[in-house]
Design a binder for these strands. Structure first.
Lengths: 254, 254
DNA sequence: AAGTGGTCTAGACCACCGA
DNA sequence: CGGTGGTCTAGACCACTTC
């Protein structure tokens, strides 16, 4: 032995803190329990509050803690598995239990979306806002962009903005023959409006799921859904029925 | 114009900074270009360095910047789309171009993995380490856990740890009839070893893709792959051939 | 050695929540 | 109102890369 270099790299304090706190969470705390406040914790570990916060931030990012301004820091429950598989090829709106229509307006789509749709970036498209609720928690906020060409028969403009109009757009979409979907997942930070729906601060980490719906040989609609990264695990089941219920939690490994 | 309520809520400085910087990136910088250093930028905007850093962190999280210690901050290229679809049901190792076997050892799996495998948490399983390389960049580091029961004919123990042993485990896996896969994506932070493979600092944000491989009516293997969240977009194509080449970049929308 | 980003400190004030 | 987390400051030193 002797060859192995022991700790050539001094471990940053916040990293060590995170490890210690993580172990404490496993052994000494129950889900939902509130931790001491940041000033106390920092004093207890003999570090500045900023350093303590760096550790807490990481633990929150990993879905182990939940922090709320004015309230405190609590131990988060295991992440909830949210099914986003595409095996059941269906139009958005087919499962009304999961998604709640919030609003619908006509507006110009972001340049990136217009490009996917193949529409003029200056053209207005139907923009439907929905939220996804699971286990009583809003886990995702979505913007669905539907070019007028995809829903030619929409009576449309006379319906005022609101959930009713959102539903009518979704209803029209069902009439098209869906040919496929294309999905992508990436990390993002919550925009102000999404943050509000998700009960998070702006900039909170989110998983952005972008879906292209194909019909009639072209992109008939595009959905951009932002999921809370702290509380969600996106599942893509391929096996039909099998589904892991709710995380693999390994608490109290002892 | 004019009518919009200007800032009922005072916007945090770092948030405003992020917006300003983001727009500057779109208009005044090319991919790969290096930004002024943090001290200069902070002075230029009249804020403390910590505040400036908070803005940079967010932009890096969104994949717009890349920072490297001792070097500087550069404008990141658009995220690369990485296919992680499960439509082609194949065992890991079937596409040797994408994944590079690094090593294989026998070790006890994490409790969460053992639970998925249905093995005794104290039992050792074959643990294969691989990295995924795309466009000359290592985008993912994977640990593949294979219980001995899944590869009964593995000559095994006499092969020393290393790429050769990794390949032999993968080869044995191919012999099983695959019945399905189960996949999940969630946000995580890079462990020390993964960070090293990915050329990132420990704690860097990663997308963790957990895959269960089903064969013989049970979970025959479990893979935990961590993708660089800053540079990767995970794609789940469902349409056969259609694939978006490399991001929808909307630079210089002007 | 010089310059970069990464870590850390010890304060301060602000925004929000609940009693 | 008091207590919480969120923002911000003006420093300091460290680890790393490059020359």
């Amino acid at each position: 032995m002797g060859t192995t270099q022991l700790e050539t790299v001094p471990e940053p304090k916040y990293w060590h803190l995170k490890t210690v706190l993580g172990e404490a969470l496993d052994s000494d705390f129950a889900v939902g329990e509130v931790l001491p406040n940041e000033r106390d914790l920092a004093a207890r570990f003999g570090v500045a509050r900023a350093t303590l916060r760096q550790a807490l931030e990481q633990l929150e990012l990993e879905g182990r803690l939940q922090r709320r301004r004015g309230v405190g820091t609590t131990v988060a429950p295991p992440r909830v598995g949210v099914d986003v598989s595409t095996t059941q090829q269906e139009w958005p709106g087919a499962d009304p239990d999961a998604w709640q229509p919030v609003d619908a307006v006509s507006a110009v789509a972001p340049a990136a979306v217009a490009k996917m749709l193949g529409t003029d970036p200056a053209d207005e498209v139907h923009t439907v806002r929905r939220t996804r609720v699971t286990h009583g928690q809003t886990v995702a906020a979505e913007l669905l962009y539907v070019p007028s060409a995809s829903v030619p028969e929409l009576p449309a403009i006379d319906i005022p903005s609101g959930p009713a109009r959102a539903r009518s757009v979704l209803r029209e979409l069902q009439r098209l023959g869906m040919e496929g979907q294309d999905r992508a997942v990436e990390l993002g930070s919550a925009r102000v409006d999404d943050a509000k729906e998700l009960d998070r601060l702006p900039g909170a980490p989110v998983l952005v799921v972008t879906t292209r719906y194909l019909a009639g040989g072209r992109t008939a609609a595009v959905s951009v859904a932002t999921y809370r990264a702290d509380t969600c695990r996106l599942t893509f089941g391929d096996t039909g029925d099998v589904r892991i219920s709710h995380h693999t939690d390994e608490r109290r490994a002892s």
